[in-house]
């Protein structure tokens, strides 16, 4: 469905995407994962023809450079942040987007209902919260009912609640069989939304794997914040340090550094020592 061959994008002498190759099958959900500046957003912009590039991109056989309108007609794009058209009403923005795609007003009603924007259609864009703006971006992308959705850091500017809601909507879209291309630097989000992760660094692919293997493949470590019953923190610290974990006190509990796949070992060590864990969080 999407084939990217030898893609290179340079700004001056610096290649921000360097000899990038990727094929994405119909209905597949792929994350471009990496730190800021890895080149993942640039790949999306190349797919949309927003920037010049070297190499070839085809979507269902159409070349993105010479048949840009054809390619974009098959895609919906959700920007990182909808920070423009502030003075437009939600419904006017969607009508505009629909007019650019030869879509009738009935479909606007349908997508606003789908993403839960119906009570907000007469508000101006500037009056929307970050979460609602993100829903508006998704609604606009869904207008043509596209087989492919490109989502650029879809939850990066959202608070926890709005993020959960956005992920819920995106999970639903994934299960409808659409092809999703998501850029992200959140491992948890990637795990919930995609079938395959393409990790990038300095414009190149470093790892391609199942999302559950990403942290291990990259050798990423996490901190477990364990909330313990009162009075057991000192004992827990001893148990963990004897067990070879790096651990330290943290208010009512301990912080212990673990490998991506090694969280259970730390928890098992404490349970074996009879220490009750009341709650836990994973910090990356």
């Amino acid at each position: 469905m999407i084939t990217i061959s030898d893609l290179t994008k340079r700004y001056g002498k610096t290649a921000v995407v360097d000899d990038f190759n990727l094929s994405i099958a119909e209905g597949e959900s792929v994350a471009l994962w990496g730190p800021n500046g890895a080149g993942k957003t640039t790949v999306v912009r190349c797919l949309l023809g927003l920037v010049s590039y070297e190499g070839t991109i085809t979507v269902n056989g159409a070349d993105a450079r010479s048949s840009g309108k054809t390619v974009r007609s098959q895609m919906g794009y959700v920007p990182q942040e909808l920070s423009f058209y502030d003075d437009m009403r939600v419904v006017d923005l969607l009508d505009y987007s629909a007019a650019l795609r030869r879509i009738g007003p009935d479909r606007v009603d349908e997508v606003t209902e789908t993403v839960g924007l119906t009570p907000h259609t007469s508000k101006k864009v500037r009056e929307l919260s970050g979460g609602l703006k993100q829903r508006l971006g998704i609604a606009s992308a869904l207008l043509p009912d596209p087989p492919i959705l490109l989502l650029d850091e879809p939850t990066s500017n959202l608070d926890a609640r709005a993020r959960d809601q956005a992920i819920g909507i995106l999970e639903g879209l994934r299960h409808e069989g659409r092809t999703l291309v998501v850029t992200s630097h959140h491992i948890e989000e990637v795990g919930m939304l995609v079938d395959r992760v393409v990790a990038m660094e300095e414009g190149r692919i470093t790892v391609e794997c199942d999302p559950t293997d990403l942290a291990e493949q990259l050798g990423l470590r996490a901190w477990l914040h364990l909330i313990l019953e009162n009075g057991s923190a000192a004992k827990a610290l001893d148990v963990l340090q004897v067990g070879g974990f790096e651990a330290k006190r943290n208010s009512r509990g301990v912080l212990v550094e673990v490998s991506a796949q090694g969280k259970g070992e730390a928890i098992a060590a404490l349970q074996h020592a009879g220490i009750t864990i009341e709650d836990l969080e994973v910090w990356r």
Binding site: L50, G68, R72, P79, F84, Y85, S97, R101
Partner: peptide, 17 residues
Amino acid sequence: GQRETGALRFLLSHPIS
């Protein structure tokens, strides 16, 4: 101005030349 705010990117992400 549209380029600065991202509005131009949004517009050109549609099937429009």
